[in-house]
Design a protein around this nucleic acid. Structure first.
Lengths: 212, 212, 212, 212
DNA sequence: GATGAATGAGCCTTCATTCAT
DNA sequence: TATGAATGAAGGCTCATTCAT
């Protein structure tokens, strides 16, 4: 229920979101009060409520913003001809983003959203659609690699893509907590994974389950 | 700060924590009010505050509880003689826990704690020490595997362990969001990783970084 | 509504009152919680409520205790044959009490009671009856002095006694606030007052009111 | 800590203080709840907390208000040329104030503050500085009187001023308790005191202390 | 009588939201 | 549109009091 015309106010909305992001990254959604956003933005309560219907609406818009940024990262992968290198390229651009101050701040907000997704349907939709995109792209690349006989046919592209994405989500978590973080480690592991999928290797069957 | 004698109150504390866990898993820390915990536990405000100094203290205690549970999962791995199978065993017990109703509930709380770790030093310490344990155990197993010539000497055990843990953290996230989740996928990927570390394979050098 | 037999429990009551006095002197009635009294006395909540019906009852009993002490001070004046010296003797014993650690503590409680008297009828009765006694004694002495022709007949004994008591109340206040306090000053002023009442002096008429 | 701009809010602050004074005079600081002040003022909780940081802050501001009023009373004495008459004039204006409905209400609050001064350093400072002013003024007048040979040189002006102030504090107390109160009694006693200081009288030595 | 864990009404305070200017 | 003082529901927490042991 923003009370102002959308076309004239895109800049104001961004201004508010920018301020809110700084606050949310610093304090989390629930510790951040509208007062904090007011102070950070230099605007007034009335103004903010002119552009966002409620605090929840602001959080939702924040989620969309994050979502847009992640989508931008992924599209970079499309240019590379070799599908496996394309996957590496996607990983690299993700890791670069994770190393930047700006990306880190946004991802701090992202972690809040991950938690929030457990109880807000709207945010849940954003967050999951945010991983479906990279999973789909990577799966597509794996399929192309299978057609080029670079990856074992037995591999399920969607499922494997999902595991790769998992790994990077976990790395982002650790990075946010200030744990030792070296992009090279992740790329090495990714290479091991990709190499392991090569059809030259022994067939990949169901995981061997040793009896306990 | 508990106002009751610590020795008489362990059962009551657990009772409160149990109720709080249900509330926190359902609503998150911040949407959960003490009233919710009161209703869930059937106790009174005064009683709860007799056992916990504040809501934050309750959250902190919740974190300790989670921590203890995770630590219990890990210690299972010690019995297995083959180090690589031991890693698989740890992964399997983690995945089983993730499939259980009870483990899922606790992990919903865990995700809140992951986010909370960004701004509470106490919770940050719990959360990171919660991953240092499995990283150390897995790294230790990788070192044993290296001595048995099952794993390439070039692999840094700590760093690789960290990546493995990342993957499982990401899987837990997706599981919590209700994404398709098949433990077999994770175990398969783990096998690919472990196989890829074998010394029979071409030496693992620095990750190949293609220039952009 | 004490639930225990009065005769067996006088010592316990005193024990509780002693502890309460320490707390009340330190923190005031309202900042003092029953918990404080419990800690100070080493007894339990149930025990205290066995001897006093409520916190208010405890405060009321505290008032009675104070009252009893003040009454004890006054009775000392009776022995002196010269009425004006008797007044001085009363003043001196009051000032001595005010100099003692013990008397100071009780008077800290007394100040709380003075304030409390504004809204509790029971405490109001204690406090005013607490000054009626010294006023009556001093007035009686003044009357004896008048009969001995030591004090001007025009003086109203009751009213003058009241003013003398005022002065000592004010001194007690200042003493409690840690203001410079010298008993000699008060005794000197008292002497000036008493001397001024002498019939040898010019008649004491209605106070001269200068026009402003 | 006020959350509203200080310049726009002086009137609102006064409105709140006015309401608070009525409540505090009626019920005391501790029995008065913020709800009472809300009802009395017709404002909301949020509004009150926009102008005062806490209930304690409100009490502190109340103390300042009282302080300002007392200071205003004293300054009246400056105009009178005869120093002893000036002291009488101060006394008279004090007694008039004590007779007014408004002054009585404020002094009921004042008595709470006297008690509160025992445990709040801020209020202690207010209360003592509130008596230092009249003591200083009266002492100054006594010094002038000494120079004019109206008062015995042996008198210590500060100390005697303090005793005079004591007397009026005590009278205020009794007035608040509803005890018989006649301003004329106080003025008469003051006259006796002042007369007694005259150099025509026998020298004022150290107070005669009879041995007990 | 004594204990102390438990109770629950009610307090102080916050903060998302509104609306007159 | 923007402002910011005002609103008031609701939250965290306290503490006088009870009662089973």
């Amino acid at each position: 229920m923003p009370k102002v015309k959308p076309e004239t106010s895109a800049a104001r909305r961004d201004e508010i979101l920018e301020a809110a992001e700084i606050c949310f990254a610093r304090e989390g959604f629930h510790q951040t009060t509208i007062q904090h956003v007011i102070r950070q933005s230099g605007l007034s309560a009335g103004c903010i409520y002119g552009h966002f219907a409620s605090k929840d609406d602001l959080i939702r818009a924040m989620g969309e913003r994050r979502h847009a940024r992640d989508a931008a990262l992924i599209s970079l992968g499309d240019a590379t001809p070799d599908p496996l290198s394309a996957i590496r390229a996607i990983a690299r651009s993700f890791l670069e983003d994770l190393a930047s101050e700006d990306g880190l701040r946004m991802r701090r907000v992202g972690l809040q959203l991950w938690a929030e997704a457990l109880r807000s349907e709207a945010i849940h939709a954003q967050v999951t659609s945010g991983i479906h995109k990279p999973i789909a792209v990577i799966a597509q690349l794996l399929r192309r690699a299978q057609r080029l006989d670079l990856v074992n046919e037995a591999v399920d592209p969607e499922r494997f893509a999902r595991v790769i994405v998992s790994m990077f989500q976990g790395l982002a978590l650790q990075r946010l907590w200030g744990e030792p973080f070296d992009p090279a480690d992740a790329l090495q592991a990714l290479d091991v994974l990709i190499e392991g999928l090569s059809p030259r290797r022994s067939p990949i069957g169901p995981p061997r389950v040793e009896q306990a």
